[in-house]
């Protein structure tokens, strides 16, 4: 249960009205990816960044039915910043599935602290840059966070800080290999095929291994990230979350 990703949790607790729309957890998952890639830049990961619209609470200005939502996503809203979207059939279904799932499980209320203080904690006491990277600073070993504020919702960020093992995105799982002569290398996986493994080791070097030269290889179940529960106060966690929410890739030129 603890290892289920958010979309699966959401899908488990979907009310009957949602199920009647006929969406599957797979639709919701696909929709989340499309939403983050295409919509969150304006609507925000919580769906509340456009005044008067709160996607996560089912509050739409111009639509209520799935059909109306679909039309708006396809055609945009003339005279507003909402552009027409170039989505195919399943992508539209998936996006609506995700919008409906957001409102079916409204976001937990997360306390946001002070972003400036959060940045100081992130770069100082929290030592987050030892593993993470923001813009051109920090380490390559952990997930890059330069635009994490677009990709993840505040509740997800808070949970990752307090319970890093609760949800590890597939692309962020650690990988470990042990060579025939006993050398152990753990790091970030780039590619895994039938015969070889490409990864970045904990010293930030790109490494490639041929599987027949390895004694063992596989994903590491636990996150290498420590829980900050008890290490940071709840105010400090709120500050760090507030800072992470501001990271939207804007520092890139």
């Amino acid at each position: 249960m603890r290892s289920l990703p958010v979309w699966a949790l959401v899908a488990l607790f979907l009310p009957p009205s949602f199920a009647q729309h006929g969406y599957t957890p797979g639709d919701v998952q696909d929709g989340e990816g499309l939403f983050i890639g295409n919509c969150a830049i304006c609507h925000g990961p919580e769906g509340d960044a456009v005044p008067g619209v709160e996607l996560a609470r089912g509050k739409f200005k111009h639509a209520s039915s799935d059909e109306e939502l679909s039309q708006i996503i396809k055609n945009g809203i003339p005279g507003t910043a909402m552009p027409p979207g170039n989505f195919r059939g399943h992508e539209l279904t998936a996006l609506i599935a995700y919008l409906r799932s957001m409102s079916a499980a409204p976001p937990e209320t997360v306390v946001l602290g002070n972003a400036a203080r959060g940045k100081a904690i992130f770069e100082g006491k929290g030592q987050c840059l030892n593993c993470h990277r923001v813009s051109a600073n920090g380490s390559y070993v952990g997930p890059e966070l330069s635009d994490i504020g677009v990709a993840r919702r505040a509740a997800q960020l808070e949970r990752s800080i307090l319970e890093p093992d609760a949800e590890i995105l597939p692309e962020n799982r650690s990988f470990r290999v042990v060579t025939q002569n006993g050398m152990e290398v753990t790091g970030r996986l780039f590619n895994l095929d039938t015969f070889t493994v490409q990864m970045m080791d904990s010293r930030e070097q790109l490494r490639s291994f041929v599987k027949k030269d390895l004694k063992e290889f596989g994903f590491v179940k636990k996150s290498p990230m420590p829980s900050y529960r008890g290490k940071l106060s709840s105010e400090e966690v709120a500050d760090v979350v507030a800072y992470l929410v501001t990271l939207r890739g804007g520092n890139r030129q």
């Binding site: 780039f190 095929d193 790109l206 490639s208």
Partner: peptide
Amino acid sequence: VALDAATGRTFW
């Protein structure tokens, strides 16, 4: 593209 120069497999 970044490849392993020995095997041609892709890093990124």
